[in-house]
């Protein structure tokens, strides 16, 4: 999964250090996260009621950044889900297009926009959380200066399951450390980013923990084999490529 999609999820960054304008802060966050491509292998642990843990692994490739990126995510373990893939084509001005590939059925399936709020394959993410929306798709408000971090509020300009969210941006490296996502019914999810490391100039959280407040379950995502800006082809991010399992 695209860490930035999760990290920024909705938000992101930019602003010179001294600036206090929330949009500039988020534009700077986005600028610092920008890369031509990204690859990683991730481990998902879904911890449900009774502390039962379901573990899955996937491989993730992204070409481009934010509003113009394309990404393919493919599950590699456990065996019963191996080969299931998801193609995400992000757009600058609208919600992403998403297709799922199911090798056992031998066909792809478009994920309808109305289904984006549903849980992503039993994790605590939703399909919408996988999108990389450009910072231009949100309005921001600076809520408070908490010393080492700013607390901001973002409100989506386009259709979204979330009404608004709160995010915390570290002042020293412009990374988002926590997101609180709200729906009409109140707080829905929280996302915490931990274990940051600098990789090819991009600060990346190696551990992401998402809590579904309504279900009282959480999902922990850990990144391995993280690579930025490795060569990738546009042709590998198509429905045909999804089918081929490239």
């Amino acid at each position: 999964m695209n860490r930035r999609a999760v990290i920024t999820g909705l938000a992101l960054l930019a602003v010179p250090c001294l600036a206090q304008d929330p949009r500039q802060i988020m534009e700077e966050v986005q600028r610092r996260q920008r890369s031509d491509s990204q690859h990683y292998e991730g481990t998902l642990e879904v911890i449900g009621g009774g502390n039962r843990i379901a573990t899955k692994r996937w491989m993730y490739d992204r070409l481009g950044s934010f509003g113009a990126s394309k990404a393919i995510l493919r599950f590699v373990a456990p065996p019963e889900v191996k080969g299931v893939g998801l193609l995400i084509v992000n757009h600058a001005d609208k919600a992403s297009d998403q297709w799922m590939w199911r090798p056992n059925i031998g066909r792809e399936q478009r994920i309808a926009f109305q289904d984006r709020s549903t849980r992503f394959f039993g994790t605590d993410f939703s399909f919408e959380d996988l999108e990389e929306r450009d910072v231009a798709q949100y309005d921001f408000k600076l809520l408070s200066d908490e010393g080492a971090a700013w607390k901001l509020e973002s409100t989506p300009r386009k259709s979204s399951q979330y009404t608004h969210s709160y995010l915390w941006v570290k002042k020293d490296n412009y990374t988002v450390t926590r997101l609180e996502l709200f729906t009409k019914k109140g707080l829905m999810r929280t996302i915490d980013y931990r274990d940051f490391e600098l990789n090819k100039g991009v600060w990346t959280a190696r551990t992401t923990e998402i809590n579904d407040v309504t279900r009282n379950s959480r999902t922990i995502l850990k990144f391995d084999k993280l690579e930025y800006n490795s060569p990738m082809k546009d042709a590998d991010f198509t429905i045909d490529a999804l089918r081929r399992g490239v």
Partner: peptide
């Protein structure tokens, strides 16, 4: 029936055609 965590896993349900 809440007897096994994997039951409610849509990914397994969707990934396995059977």
């Amino acid at each position: 029936e809440d007897t096994d965590a994997s039951i409610d896993d849509p990914l397994v349900f969707l990934a396995q055609a059977d």
